[in-house]
Design a protein around this nucleic acid. Structure first.
Length: 485
RNA sequence: CGGAGUGUAGCGCAGCCUGGUAGCGCAAUUGCUUUGGGAGCAAUGGGUCGGGAGUUCGAAUCUCUCCACUCCGACCA
């Protein structure tokens, strides 16, 4: 009876954005809740995207002179407590390891053995500044040892009160970079350089338009003297902090004792930075690009660029079609196109909707007649039916990369246009209140002075507003304000 | 930690108020039909109703008590 076209995802974005988000993850088969509180199981379709992200960004950081390392999951409790602000920031959300053996209780159930209680507990890393800093304090003796630029790809754990898949889970995957320098200027430049790397990565690879800027003091990383951020806007107008880069000044160097002998022969503390991006970016891509039919992946990180769906019939010679599809698959792979030939024993319409929900950028369909003629039909996920095109196989193989680039580009442009439409300039606190009272979405941009206004503090609380950043483009004179994930 | 919910088949749920043979939809399996686009019909398999205790001739249902999870706040990438 409904005139509304049937969507693959229910509810739609308009009906219930948070629930829609969960359903997209399920439909695209990216992840599911784990039997561990607040944790998720990342399934093959989700992990493949993370691997692509890692591969691209790992290349970028190596180009910037950073080397990869691996430090332990467990951090001695005493390390965490060294930097005062850092403790305050993370103490509330640390998982702690206190025992090293299990034993059976009187009911035969396992419990930690009292006799195996650790003298000093370990903290499961919420971030690794302290343990990497401890190593740096031994590795750095002279200005000749600087700069030292280290990164690790790992998991961290923060015992969050409330979790949402990809956006905020107790355990998440990320990279954390930790660099040390001779001078304050070198460190500041580096923090900005790595932020710029994040901007390039987010925009070019993930098609996420971001605003670069500095966080206010309240939003700063615990222990940093400055935190820089890339902020993205989701389709519901909320902000997502997509990556941060911190200038730690000498705070950590002093508390962890990272000292070096300077060119002048003096003993000085190093200036350090740290920077991280996480699996949260996957959540950002979902909330930026997906639609009411499911996921739409930016080609550069998509698990598959192209899915080939053979249109088979029971009463015909399907081997010919399958051979033809395999041959196409080989040709495309030779061009560096990531292809999936969907030869599963399933109904064709189900395969097609599966490809739609999974967000494969290009869907290729080949039926018996097309196989004979050497043609195919292809459809762009981001446009849908209207982009249905028939062409020769040769033509498609030649053109595949162009189509993928065009999809990448239009996803970015669409997201950027949406974001720009939803940032409005406001003159004062009353304007800010009027905006959010009217349930308008997006960010407002105001003079940075409003943050000191008592009236602003009131409405920020009422409407759940946070300052996102002081954009570099406004020279730190303006602040972007919005709701956030 | 505050407020509100939910735990029944792989998934989504009804049944509970008013106790009396364990149900529905989807998925799965099998068969037939259908086939350029989320198919139809038929059959089949699958559950100690979150755990424990109590009331009762009898508990998914009533009582008590644990436990887990979800949502809304506070906290955060």
């Amino acid at each position: 009876m409904s005139k509304k076209p049937r969507t693959a995802i229910t509810p739609t974005r308009d009906e219930n954005f948070p629930e829609w988000y969960q359903q997209v993850i399920k439909a695209a088969d990216l992840a599911e809740n784990a039997p561990v509180r607040g944790c998720m199981i990342i399934k093959p379709a989700g992990y493949a995207v993370w691997e692509n992200m890692q591969r691209i960004f790992d290349g970028m950081i190596k180009d910037r002179g950073v080397e990869n390392v691996y430090f332990p999951l467990l951090i001695p409790l005493e390390f965490i407590s060294r930097e005062a602000d850092h403790v305050d920031g993370f103490a509330k959300e640390c998982a702690v390891v206190t025992h090293h053996r299990l034993e059976k209780d009187e009911n035969g159930k396992l419990r930690p053995a009292e006799s195996a209680k650790l003298e000093e507990p370990y903290v499961i890393r919420p971030t690794s500044e302290t343990i990497i800093g401890e190593a740096m304090s031994r590795w750095i003796q002279s200005y000749r040892d600087l700069p030292m630029k280290l990164n690790q790809w790992c998991n961290v754990m923060r015992w969050e009160m409330r979790t949402r898949m990809f956006l905020r889970t107790s355990e998440f995957l990320w990279q954390e970079g930790h660099n040390a320098f001779e001078t304050a200027k070198d460190a500041r430049d580096d923090a900005l350089k790595m932020l710029e790397a994040y901007r390039i990565f987010a925009e070019d690879s993930l098609a996420l338009p971001v605003i670069t800027g500095e966080k206010t003091v309240d939003e700063r990383f615990p222990g940093a003297i400055a935190t820089f951020t890339i902020e993205a806007m989701m389709q519901d107008g909320k902000a997502l902090q997509a990556g941060t880069s911190h200038d730690l000044g000498q705070n950590f160097a002093k508390s962890i004792n990272i000292k070096f002998q300077s060119r002048e022969g003096d003993e000085e503390f190093a200036h350090t930075t740290s920077w991280g991006i996480s699996t949260r970016l996957i959540g950002g891509m979902i909330m930026t690009h997906a639609d009411d039919d499911g996921m739409i992946w930016p080609p550069r990180v998509a698990q598959h660029h192209v899915v080939i769906i053979p249109i088979t019939k029971d009463d015909t010679d399907n081997d010919a079609i399958m051979d033809h599809c395999s041959a196409l698959s080989v040709q495309l792979k030779a061009q560096g196109v990531r292809v999936r030939l969907d030869d599963r024993d399933m109904r064709t319409p189900d395969k097609m909707w599966d490809a739609v929900k999974r967000g494969v950028p290009i869907r290729v369909e080949i039926g018996g007649r097309e196989a004979e003629e050497g043609t195919l039909t292809h459809v762009r996920r981001d446009i849908g039916r209207d982009s249905k095109t028939s062409c020769s196989i040769v033509e498609f193989v030649d053109d595949a990369h162009n189509i993928l680039d065009d999809i990448q580009c239009s996803l970015f442009n669409k997201a950027r246009a949406f974001r720009d439409e939803n940032i409005v300039d406001v003159a004062n606190v009353a304007d800010i209140e009027a905006h959010f009272k009217a349930e308008k979405i997006g960010f407002v941009r105001a003079d940075v002075g409003v943050l000191d206004d008592d009236a602003y503090a009131q409405i920020a609380k009422t409407y759940g507003l946070t300052s996102r950043c002081l954009p570099f483009s406004d020279d730190g004179k303006k602040v972007l304000i919005g709701k956030a994930y």
